[in-house]
Amino acid sequence: MTMTLLAVDDESINLMIIEESLSEKGFMIVKAKDGEEALAILNSDEYSFFAIILDRLMPNMDGIELLKKIKRSEKWRDIPVIFQTAMSGISDMTEGLDSGAFYYLTKPYSRAVLVTIVHTAVEHYVKLLRAKEDLHKGMGALRHLVNGEFRIRTIKESHELAPILANACPDPERVLTGIMEILNNAIEHGNLGITYQEKTDLHNNDKLMEEILRRLEAPEYKDKYVEIYFQKLEDKIIIIIKDQGKGFDWQRYLSLQAMTRNAFKTHGRGIFMAKRLSFDDLTYFDGGSKAQITILLNQNSSKLLTDFQE
């Protein structure tokens, strides 16, 4: 299947580089010279996009304005947006984050970096689409779940469980991505002991899933599992996700500084974005081997913690 991407940039040379770099990798590129043209293309419903590569500074409608429109749309909001920018200060990054950016490219960038980021974004989106299909398969009765205990071992099992947990929450689509991220983190980094640098190297060589499958069968990892506890209280839902790993420096990955430091990389932002966009709070205990997710049931309640608490 050919995957279609939307590239938005007012510089024709940049569009040419994007098209040349990604066409040879099997992607189809639809080009727009500014935000207004991109919005018209999106509204035409002629294409189903797997990612949008968006320049920040453009005439007529700039990248931030278009990004906000995309993320406000129920139809487009889940499409990953790869934000091209030369502005990498914390205030600039915060503005992009608040508008819905997740993946970043800092200009000038190499073709190899472009291809790696696009592959990562599209892979994440395909997994999300598959999980969202399960949100609408008659699991509405899970809204009545009060207490539940689960045990998983593999990435496949985490993708099966995530829609179940999400459907037990008042806004399943909001929490689905975050739950998937925390479950995958517990398996990959917790039980299987894949470090940040190892994941970077495996990503760059397109060998991450191969290594995950290898470790799942290795004697030192094959008996490890992740425990999940779900509890619905009067005013909130608590989800505990506990792995059997050594833990990690979780505070480092929940700070705004960590997000800006890792923004231009293929990974390292997941738990920050989960807390920011999917949950009302996310806290780790036991040295990072136990995550506690909080989802408030009163929609008018404020966040338990400020969005950017370090």
Rank of each mutant, 00 (worst) to 15 (best):
R111F: 03
A166C: 08
A168V: 12
L161N: 07
V115Q: 12
R151C: 15
A112N: 13
P170L: 03
Y109P: 09
R143A: 14
P108W: 03
V115K: 12
Y103V: 09
L142C: 10
Y125I: 03
H144L: 15
R151K: 15
L114P: 08
R130L: 14
Y109M: 07
F150A: 02
P108E: 04
G148Y: 01
T116C: 04
Y104K: 08
D98Q: 03
N167E: 04
N147G: 06
A121M: 10
V122C: 08
Y104Q: 07
G100S: 09
L114R: 06
Y125P: 10
F150V: 11
K127N: 12
V126C: 12
K132C: 02
I117K: 04
P108A: 03
G140M: 02
H159P: 01
L129T: 06
L161K: 08
K137V: 08
S158L: 11
N147H: 10
L165S: 08
T106N: 07
Y103T: 04
T154G: 06
A168E: 13
K156G: 01
A112F: 06
V113T: 12
T154Q: 04
A131D: 06
P163V: 10
I152P: 11
G96T: 01
K156Q: 13
H136W: 12
R143L: 12
D134Q: 10
L142D: 11
V118H: 11
I152T: 02
I152C: 11
L105H: 06
L114S: 12
Y103C: 07
K156N: 09
P163T: 14
A168R: 13
K107A: 05
N147V: 00
E133I: 01
A112Y: 08
H136Y: 14
G148I: 04
R130F: 10
K127R: 13
A166S: 15
S99W: 00
V115D: 01
H159Y: 13
T106F: 15
T154S: 15
G148H: 09
P163K: 13
G140R: 10
I152R: 11
R111S: 12
A162N: 04
I164D: 01
P108Q: 01
A141E: 14
K127Y: 09
A166D: 12
S110L: 05
Y103N: 12
L161F: 10
D171S: 13
Y125K: 05
S110H: 01
L142E: 13
L128D: 06
D134H: 10
T116Q: 15
I152G: 04
L135I: 06
V118E: 13
H119A: 09
L129I: 13
T154F: 05
